[in-house]
Structures are given as C-alpha cells and as structure tokens.
Write a protein that binds this DNA or RNA. Sequence first.
DNA 1: CGGGTCTTTGATTAGGTTCAATAAGAGTGG
DNA 2: CCACTCTTATTGAACCTAATCAAAGACCCG
Lengths: 307, 307
Amino acid sequence: MLTTQTPEIRPFKVTIPSSFYAEAAGSAPGATVWYPLEAGRQRQGRLWSNLKEVCDLLQISLAGPMAADELLFQHVRFKTGQRIHTIGQPFDTLYIVKSGFLKTILIDDFGGEQVLSFPMQGDLLGVDGIHTKHYSSEAVALSDCDLILLPFNKLTALGRVHPELDSLMYGVMSRELAREQAMIGMLGALSAEARVARFLLSLAERFAHMGYSSKLFNLRMTRHEIGSYLGLTLETVSRTLSAFNEIGLISVDQRTIGINDPAALKTLRRLPPSCSRAKQLAAAKLKAAREPAGGDLDSEIKLSVLI
Amino acid sequence: MLTTQTPEIRPFKVTIPSSFYAEAAGSAPGATVWYPLEAGRQRQGRLWSNLKEVCDLLQISLAGPMAADELLFQHVRFKTGQRIHTIGQPFDTLYIVKSGFLKTILIDDFGGEQVLSFPMQGDLLGVDGIHTKHYSSEAVALSDCDLILLPFNKLTALGRVHPELDSLMYGVMSRELAREQAMIGMLGALSAEARVARFLLSLAERFAHMGYSSKLFNLRMTRHEIGSYLGLTLETVSRTLSAFNEIGLISVDQRTIGINDPAALKTLRRLPPSCSRAKQLAAAKLKAAREPAGGDLDSEIKLSVLI
DNA sequence: CGGGTCTTTGATTAGGTTCAATAAGAGTGG
DNA sequence: CCACTCTTATTGAACCTAATCAAAGACCCG
C-alpha cells in the first residue's frame, strides 16, 4: 500500500528532477549552502530564508539566541496542479509553505482521493513520511506556491548543533497533531452545516493571520475538495453554502465568500428550520398529496408538485 | 477553550498529587534519577525502564549505540477510571503505555466527550500538549495501567546528550500523525459497517502484536465509546456487531469478540443486502400497506400516522 | 464558439439517528 | 443471598439528514 508509486495519470508532472535532491547526503552539518541551484531555474523571488524567517513563518517562538543567518533554507516554486510529493515516494524532505495554497490527500482503497488538509502559509508538509521513510500522503499545489525546503537528514544533523531546532520541530508536529485531533472531533460529532460553518471560519482566521481580509476571500479549492475534506458530498457543500447565503450568514458568489456573521457561524449546530422551510413545505405537500382523503384541492396540489 | 479545567464530575480523581510533578524543573540533564518516589506508593511491578525497553515498546529501532542503562524512566500505575491528564492542565510529561488500556477524549463545545483513540501497549500519550504547553485532550484508564513517564523538559535536555532520542521522538510523532490521517480518511469516506469492521481488525492486529490472540479478545470499551470513536451512535455499533455476528463474520458475546473472517472484514464496504433483508421486507410491507389502491385500511393507517 | 470542469438546484432514496422499551450484568447494601 | 439500582446492551419503529441520481446553468480556456 505504501509502496504504491501512484500509477494514476495526473494533470501535471513534478518538474524537479530527482537529481535535484540527490546531493543531500554527505555534506557537513551546519553548512550554509546545501544544494547547487540548477542553472536558470526559478530565479524570481527570494530563494533563501534564514532560521528566523522560518520560525516567524511557523509562528513558533524559538527559545534562546538564534543562529542568525548561519542557516539558510532554500526555496522551491511549484505551479498550480503540480505535486510536491506522492504517496509511497521515498521521504527525504519537509516543506514549509511560504506562499500559495495546497491540498494534501490520501488515496483510498479504490482510487478515490480523500482530502486531509489545505496547507497554506506557515504550514508544514511531509511530516507523515518521517516514520516509514516514505510519504504516506500526497501534496498538490492549488495555486502557484513558494515552499521552503527542509531536508530531513540535514535537519536532524543540525539539531545536534542547534538544539533549538528540535524544540521547534516538536512544537510544530505537536500543533499538527492537535489540529488533526480537532478534525477528528469535528468529523465524528458535527452536522454538515456545522462542518461547513467551521471550515469557513477556520479559513477566515487563517487568512486574517496572513494579513488578508477575514471577511472576504476566495476559496482556492472546489466544492468537491471541500466536501472530501469535510466528509460530505459536493452537493451538500453547495446547498449548505446556498442556505447560509440565503439567511445572510455569508455571501456567496462562486468562489468568493463574504463572512457576514462570524458569531452565528461559530455557534451554529444545526440550521434553524426557517431556511429549510421550503424543503419542509414541499415534503408536507407531498405527504398531503399521498394521503388525499378525497378532494379536488388535493389533486391540484398533486399536479403542481408532480409536473 | 483550552483553559477549561474540566469542572465536570468524574467517577475517579487523579490520585497523584501535583507535587509529584513539581520537581521536574531545574535538575541537571542526564541525571539518572528524576523524581523521588513517594513513600509506599505503587511498589509492585517494575518501576523503571531503560532506553532499550522504551524503544522496544515503541517499536522504534534506534540508530547507533544506545546509552545502555544510563537512562532510566520511571513507571506509574493508574487504576481503572483514573485520569492521566485532563484538558487544559499544564503539560509537562509524556507517557508510554507499558500495559493496560486507555481512551483519549476531547470535550466538545457542550460537554459531550469525543473519543480520539484507544491507546494500548507501546502507544504514546500527551504529545498534543507540547505545542501549547497544555494538554489539549484527556486520557482515561479503561483498565489498570502501567505507564512510563517521559518528563518533557528532561527529554529535550537529554536529546542534546543523546541525539538518537530526538530521532526516536520524530519517528513516534510521525507515526501518530499518519495514524490520525488514516482515521480522518476513514471518518470521511467509509460507511458505518466498514468503520466497525476496520475497528475490529485494527484491534485484532494490535492484540496480535502484543502476543494476545487476534481471533478472540475482549473489548475494553463500551459501545458508546466505540461509537464516539467511529463517529456513530452506540445503537449503530450494536446493530452492526449483531449483523456481522448473524452472517458469521464475527462472534459476539457482550464484550467478547471472535474474529471469524478477517479477509471479509478487510474488504467490506457495505453489508450485503442478505442481512438487512428483514429491514427491507418490513419497509416493503409498510410501503404496500400505504398504497392499497383505496380501501378502509387507508383511513386506519392515516389515523395511526397522524396521532 | 465549443468543450471542459465546476456549480447549483431538484427529486428520490437509503443509511443512520433518535426515541423508546426491554433485557442482561455488575455492583451495593440490607 | 437476594433485591435493588445503575450502567450497558439489544432491538424495534419512525424520522431525518445527507447521499444519490439527474439536469441545467455558469465559468474558463483554447
């Protein structure tokens, strides 16, 4: 299962040749330059980050004095649709999202993809690969992305020189774990509406933290991907969004979402019947139509409903 | 939310006074004795484990030579029903399960508990507390338990002396993360029957790994707890178990489970209609009764439905 | 413009929850 | 030891949420 090399056909291929990673082994810990940059590749934007930038990005405060600019971490860019890593691929590096939006997925026993998370700025990718030395999930760019490389063997080697790195990693992994626990809690206990509401709120919070508006933003993912993430179908997601829109909690226009009533979204457990009233009425009509008790009115209704 | 000190009344109280943990801070890294054992407490059984035992328990192979018996880890025993840690409690130590069975839970926005996992031999507890310095979940003993203490500040301090410890921790945390991802995948995608089937199989595997029978074992948790864990109601769990029993996949007698057809359980997606036949027949009857094409029966039914 | 994907909305159905009643243990105290 | 209670488990019936099936509209991109 873990050895699958994902024979599926995908829209894009990873453009970084494996040789790009090949030189990771065998250089001294603490070296300031890790990988020769391939000639002419991805020169736009900042290509390196120091430890401070990495910590800021991860929102982790590093105890003790930092190793300043001694440690540099290389960036890589991915275009929309590209895979960062695939299931079963040998694990060697972690990634921190500097900018852009991604999804991580699991391929279930037959072919269907299950969305696990939507990483964005400050999130860490690839942690699931440490244990088995193979990635157990797949990461795909939903927009053009700028990722910071954290080659894992380098990281552990550096951990011996700069122990604060290990603390940093513990913190990040623990946060990830707690986040997944919250996700499990949500999937286990909440209704469809509550899931969608919380999803929107969590997006809003994350956008706010990145300096974007928490009141108005664009979804980078499809309804299908949202549904997969929330354990719902795309139709249910769409309907729920429409319902929220109708009662004014949010404003929906395709992938543009306006958050109008965050408080209501936060406390929402089930949708007040006022909005599903139409549905209920229709159901009542049908019911009434099925039990005619004799009468012309009844037949009329039956017609209007059935035609 | 995280600051909740769990005001709920619980059947048991933690018997270890907080002063037991108070001396964790401020001792030298690498010390072989960490905590004074309270006089007369829990002397039965082995009280200390060395690093090798810990690694064996965690099923993690430690690269490089081990620090032999220099590092000793203290055990603590908990009785059935006791809480190991609660939500919001300051984080200071990790626990490895040496023997016994537990559950970890989340308390959702109103009071209901959501089961996150059923830790047993070799599992690690408390990792979710590292990031915020407060446990974000609660662990409860489902049977008498023997846990190994891993005071976290000691662990990080020791990591500087014995870097293999950090690798060990990365591996364990990564495994935990991958496990939770699989859980999310399951909750998002599988039917009730498939969830129960997988749950039984995973229990069987874990029992087998501990040297117990994978064909016959006792559940340590209630139907309610299983349901919470799987995102189902206790009734659904009970019914599914009964259905599996009826078609011979398993044998159920209260909490004693016999696994008869592991292969079928593994590949099961939805239950073959043969077993829900009774349900279908009943439904068909009702349907037939509801559409009698005119007659006295109609009014009768209407009455019974509307009143 | 046309073909693709994505989204919305409707109608129907099925799987799972809820409510309810009963039964079986386990523990407690007389 | 038995009656009593409390928790846990089983089973039935009705209801309801969300999935499924289906069709049409919106958007994007070559």
